[in-house]
């Protein structure tokens, strides 16, 4: 259960904050997924309405 993880309350968030968590930024699964998303968006672009608002 989530309560087994050391937590502290984060500002503005409904989530508890796990200060001891492992960083999965380099995990192959997420790296591959991010690369695939990039390929998809470079091929198909973004909705124009979203880009205009940014």
């Amino acid at each position: 259960m989530a309560t087994q993880i050391k937590t502290k309350k984060a500002a503005k968030s409904k989530a508890l904050s796990n200060t001891k968590g492992k960083d999965y930024g380099n995990a192959p699964f997420f790296v591959k997924k991010a690369k695939e998303s990039k390929a998809f968006l470079e091929k198909n672009g973004f909705p124009e309405a979203i880009l205009k608002k940014r």
Partner: peptide, 22 residues
């Protein structure tokens, strides 16, 4: 499910609970 976020708020963890455990 209750969830926790990483310090950089890029990751969120939670536990699925059911017939095959947590």
């Amino acid at each position: 499910y209750p969830f926790v976020s990483s310090k950089n708020s890029l990751e969120f963890e939670f536990y699925s609970k059911g017939r095959n455990g947590k």
